[in-house]
Design a protein around this nucleic acid. Structure first.
Length: 238
DNA sequence: GCGACAG
DNA sequence: ATCTTGTCGC
């Protein structure tokens, strides 16, 4: 578009030029230290997103092949309206705290294949609830410019007390003197999940979105549909 | 030194 | 993440 267009430029979320892929854990840490400054902690993010994306990755037994999937759900009906997959190799060894570098390239490739742009990314892993406050959800949020939240099944950092047994109850996840997320009960009597902000979202809104995505099961429908898709894609690839 | 450690 | 049998419960 020329600078003489009638309309002002759309307020497109600023994508972040992807830094070179790190080759060593030390380089990966340096990338995190650099990108963490770009995380938007204010949000508050969309109160009523039209579409919400789920991202997940499945690995082959051999460990040298993976399939990444993104499913986009209508936030109101939770029906899948778009999806994409990408098969590849793990881009990094698995190191707790550097987990994102393994799956990021494949996840970004899958995101690129979508025909729509989701209003929110729901990631399988943590956001701020990370040793350097830059988990997968922050990384994906900063690189895509999209609002993002992290939903982890097990803790990585922090201390907490179990929330009461009813769906919707939560307790703060604390680490190093700060609140980095929430331990949220998504169904009565099930193990809680660990919700944290990724990018351009408030913790309150992140919690609300996760509850809206868990009408029946412990994990968000976004995660469930993406999990099924990447498993199927991996089976086809083998 | 020992234990913990997203997926 | 993935490897794994049965089992308890709706």
């Amino acid at each position: 578009m020329s600078s003489g267009s009638k309309q002002p430029a759309p307020a497109a979320p600023a994508k972040q030029p992807a830094p070179a892929a790190p080759a060593t854990p030390a380089e990966a840490v340096a990338v995190q230290e650099e990108l963490r400054e770009l995380v938007d902690l204010v949000g508050p993010g969309p109160a009523a997103p039209a579409t919400v994306a789920g991202l997940d990755v499945a690995y082959a037994q051999s460990g040298d092949l993976l399939a990444a999937a993104v499913t986009v759900l209508d936030a109101r009906t939770l029906a899948v309206v778009d999806s994409a997959v990408s098969v590849g190799r793990p881009a990094f060894e698995y190191v707790p705290g550097l987990f994102a570098f393994r799956e990021l390239p494949a996840l970004l490739a899958a995101l690129d294949r979508l025909t729509t742009v989701p209003d929110l990314l729901v990631c399988d892993g943590h956001g701020l609830a990370h040793p350097r406050r830059f988990g997968l959800a922050c990384h994906l949020g900063v690189v895509t410019g999209l609002p993002a939240i992290g939903v982890g099944k097990t803790p990585l950092v922090g201390e907490w007390v179990p929330p009461s047994a009813e769906r919707g109850s939560w307790s703060p996840l604390r680490d190093g003197g700060e609140i980095v997320g929430r331990v949220l009960r998504t169904q009565d009597g099930v193990k809680p999940v660990f919700v944290s902000v990724g990018h351009r979202m408030s913790l309150d809104n992140a919690t609300a979105q996760v509850l809206a995505l868990t009408p029946r099961y412990r994990l968000p429908e976004t995660t469930r549909t993406a999990d099924r898709l990447c498993r199927d894609a991996l089976a086809d690839a083998e």
